[in-house]
Design a protein around this nucleic acid. Structure first.
Lengths: 211, 211
DNA sequence: CATATCATGTAAAACAATGTTACTATAATT
DNA sequence: AATTATAGTAACATTGTTTTACATGATATG
């Protein structure tokens, strides 16, 4: 997450983070049969100011039409291009415990262009066919398999104490983006991106405001 | 998420959001048998500057000792107090499909003080005993049950098209904090907090930087 | 015991993000 | 033709966030 105001092409990560939210809203509007929307409507739906939406989008070009608004299908396509999700991505999943199996079986990934291409676990008893259609492979095969497939994205669903070591191996195998379900922060070199899914952290963030 | 610089007690939400991360790191250090840490060590572990950690903590008082650092157990306890997680919280879960059942069976919640107290689903065929120890109740019983138990926290794991309506019913029943697993933004009145779990949005945020 | 080192807490400064306003250009509607 | 709606842009003000610098106190060392 570099910044460097010296680089005019630099776009704040916080802006990138809002694009999937815009995309999600556009998909919903499209599904409801709507063809055109506006920054005001999007803002109302998302609880974001219309000015901010226009400003965010203007980083990437003019996608709307003055007086009319945005063609939903067109803007959706443009956002997919920007986010590079106008293609399918293969993912490697490490960890086939309860959490890992739930992640493997979650339909939302393949529905939205992310295919789990292989699953690894250190428990040799799990090697073989287990959840859904996935053949669980031993960790020893990770590097070779991931390199061969050229996979750049990983999900980690192992106990916290193993997450860092797993991350190291993944990075060794060429992974550049990690979605970490383990409740622990991991250290990665520059150029590798990490996002965290920790539902309990989200809950704890809200309890502050309760009672 | 109000601000108002007129209120000296106001603490930025982004600061609140980092406290669970600090807590998570402290728990790990404690588990490893360590008794004392410092803002520098925490910063190194978390990839956050030590100054920011000190500043964040200073909002709530002086928890450290100059020259020494922070007693891990003490700081952990203080953070729990601030976040109000030095107690157990009951949660209502709505949605008992694949995702809802996976959420219901996830050990991480009860391990960290969040107990799923009841589960609702609109599919009458699911009413009865299904996942883990949870008896799935019909939506018609939601308001009465949640009000009677005084539950303030909910998790939504229903298809996106039903999420807003479910949220409305939950808020009617007194819920003030919602963890939404449905990939859609929901509108809530002031005083109700929402957090989102959308793994695909996290992945899409990272693909921008790939290739 | 004096000195060096380490670490917190905080004030000030620097930086970044957001919101506001004003404006132009364009499109659709009346 | 006039009115209304909207995007896109720029300038600005405001707010929020992070970093820097440093005074103070604690600990360790020689």
């Amino acid at each position: 997450m570099p910044s460097h105001s010296t680089n005019p092409d630099y776009i704040p990560d916080i802006v990138i983070g809002r694009l999937p939210i815009y995309l999600r809203a556009l998909m919903r509007l499209a599904q409801d049969g709507q063809e055109v929307t506006s920054s005001h409507e999007l803002g109302r739906i998302l609880g974001i100011s219309s000015a901010q939406i226009r400003k965010d989008l203007s980083h990437f070009g003019g996608f709307g039409k003055q007086g009319t608004g945005y063609q939903i299908a067109y803007l959706e396509e443009k956002l997919r291009q920007v986010l590079k999700v106008n293609r399918e991505w293969e993912i490697v999943l490490v960890g086939a415990g309860d959490l890992g199996q739930a992640v493997a079986n979650y339909r939302g990934f393949s529905d939205r262009g992310f295919n789990i291409a292989c699953v690894f676990d250190s428990n040799t008893q799990k090697i073989g066919k287990k959840p859904g259609n996935f053949v669980i492979q031993p960790m020893a095969e990770l590097k070779e398999t991931v390199l061969a497939k050229g996979i750049q994205i990983a999900m980690i669903a192992v106990p916290a104490e193993y997450a860092q070591e797993v991350a190291n191996q993944l990075i060794e195998a060429g992974v550049r983006a990690i979605l970490n379900y383990a409740p622990i922060s991991i250290n990665v070199p520059d150029g590798v991106h990490v996002q965290y899914i920790d539902p309990v952290a989200h809950l704890q963030r809200m309890t502050y405001y309760l009672k």
